Amino acid sequence: MLIGVLALQGAFIEHEKMLRSLGVDTVQVRLPGQLDKLDGLVIPGGESTTMGKLMNDFGLFEPIREKAENGLPVLGTCAGMIMMAREIAGSSQPRLGLMDISVERNAFGRQVDSFEADINIEAIGEEPFRAVFIRAPYILGVDGNVQILARHGDKIVAARQGRFMVLAFHPELTRDNRLHKYFLENMNI
């Protein structure tokens, strides 16, 4: 199994370490040709506007969208969630638009408002997941066959639609590999 991690900016190294701890081979993706032969792709957190600009500069939007529409499972965390949304509130920034969700950027506040919280994610077990929220977005609404996986209070912070999964927080910054494992086991990889 080979999982690509978009490595333009953000927490891509941490995702690689988490995936390797699960016995998965990884490759950093910076160019379209690096998408070939992947069994899945992770779009990490970072800054979504910068990530979008770099994805555009390196010609990654259409190749990623095409691979995803043809069966490539994709996990997006934080900024990755923003990139995967069909709609971003108040923004026309470039995005992949892979999931029938609308998101609010920096919805929990600025960098100084970052926090950790225990959230319940039934799909990975009874033990709460200690989520790290850094300038985190959240999902304003879902359409189609989007399955809500978790909320923090009344805010949707994790969802899945077919082979795609998004998280508003950073599981790669914890020692808990349950969400990466869930992605690998349940996204038809």
Results as ranks from 00 to 15, higher is better:
residue 153 G to E: 09
residue 88 I to A: 04
residue 52 G to L: 12
residue 97 G to W: 08
residue 80 G to A: 09
residue 37 K to W: 02
residue 98 L to R: 00
residue 159 A to V: 12
residue 95 R to V: 11
residue 181 K to L: 15
residue 182 Y to G: 12
residue 122 E to K: 05
residue 96 L to N: 04
residue 163 R to K: 13
residue 56 N to V: 11
residue 89 A to E: 15
residue 158 A to T: 15
residue 100 D to G: 01
residue 144 G to Y: 05
residue 119 I to W: 02
residue 4 G to D: 11
residue 120 N to T: 13
residue 179 L to Q: 06
residue 52 G to A: 11
residue 137 P to V: 14
residue 115 F to L: 15
residue 68 A to F: 03
residue 124 I to N: 03
residue 180 H to N: 07
residue 41 L to F: 09
residue 182 Y to C: 13
residue 113 D to K: 00
residue 58 F to R: 03
residue 28 Q to Y: 05
residue 184 L to W: 04
residue 11 A to Y: 06
residue 114 S to H: 10
residue 164 F to K: 05
residue 2 L to D: 10
residue 65 R to E: 14
residue 18 M to E: 10
residue 114 S to Y: 10
residue 12 F to E: 12
residue 186 N to P: 14
residue 57 D to N: 06
residue 98 L to K: 00
residue 83 M to G: 08
residue 23 G to S: 05
residue 10 G to C: 05
residue 173 L to S: 08
residue 58 F to S: 07
residue 170 H to Y: 13
residue 28 Q to T: 04
residue 186 N to K: 10
residue 124 I to S: 04
residue 108 F to L: 15
residue 56 N to W: 04
residue 22 L to H: 04
residue 144 G to V: 06
residue 182 Y to D: 14
residue 127 E to L: 09
residue 166 V to K: 00
residue 114 S to W: 12
residue 113 D to I: 05
residue 34 Q to R: 01
residue 39 D to T: 03
residue 32 P to V: 14
residue 146 V to I: 06
residue 35 L to M: 10
residue 135 R to C: 12
residue 38 L to R: 03
residue 40 G to A: 11
residue 154 D to W: 02
residue 136 A to Q: 09
residue 5 V to A: 08
residue 151 R to I: 04
residue 13 I to P: 00
residue 145 N to T: 08
residue 26 T to P: 00
residue 39 D to G: 06
residue 182 Y to Q: 09
residue 15 H to N: 08
residue 163 R to C: 10
residue 27 V to H: 01
residue 101 I to T: 02
residue 155 K to P: 13
residue 85 A to L: 03
residue 91 S to H: 06
residue 6 L to Q: 08
residue 174 T to Y: 00
residue 132 V to W: 01
residue 133 F to H: 07
residue 103 V to W: 00
residue 25 D to G: 02
residue 132 V to A: 12
residue 89 A to W: 12
residue 62 E to R: 01
residue 20 R to P: 08
residue 152 H to I: 13
residue 47 E to T: 08
residue 136 A to P: 02
residue 114 S to Q: 13
residue 11 A to R: 02
residue 189 I to C: 06
residue 89 A to S: 14
residue 62 E to H: 01
residue 179 L to R: 01
residue 143 D to Y: 00
residue 81 M to Y: 07
residue 63 P to H: 03
residue 125 G to A: 13
residue 96 L to S: 03
residue 75 L to D: 04
residue 67 K to F: 14
residue 23 G to N: 05
residue 139 I to M: 00
residue 141 G to C: 02
residue 155 K to D: 10
residue 140 L to I: 12
residue 163 R to N: 14
residue 32 P to S: 11
residue 80 G to T: 09
residue 53 K to P: 05
residue 81 M to R: 03
residue 135 R to E: 15
residue 101 I to H: 00
residue 59 G to H: 02
residue 115 F to N: 12
residue 115 F to C: 14
residue 14 E to K: 00
residue 122 E to Y: 02
residue 86 R to L: 14
residue 105 R to D: 15
residue 87 E to F: 01
residue 2 L to S: 07
residue 128 P to R: 03
residue 50 T to K: 03
residue 52 G to C: 12
residue 117 A to K: 06
residue 66 E to P: 06
residue 138 Y to I: 13
residue 163 R to H: 10
residue 76 G to T: 12
residue 71 G to D: 12
residue 83 M to Q: 14
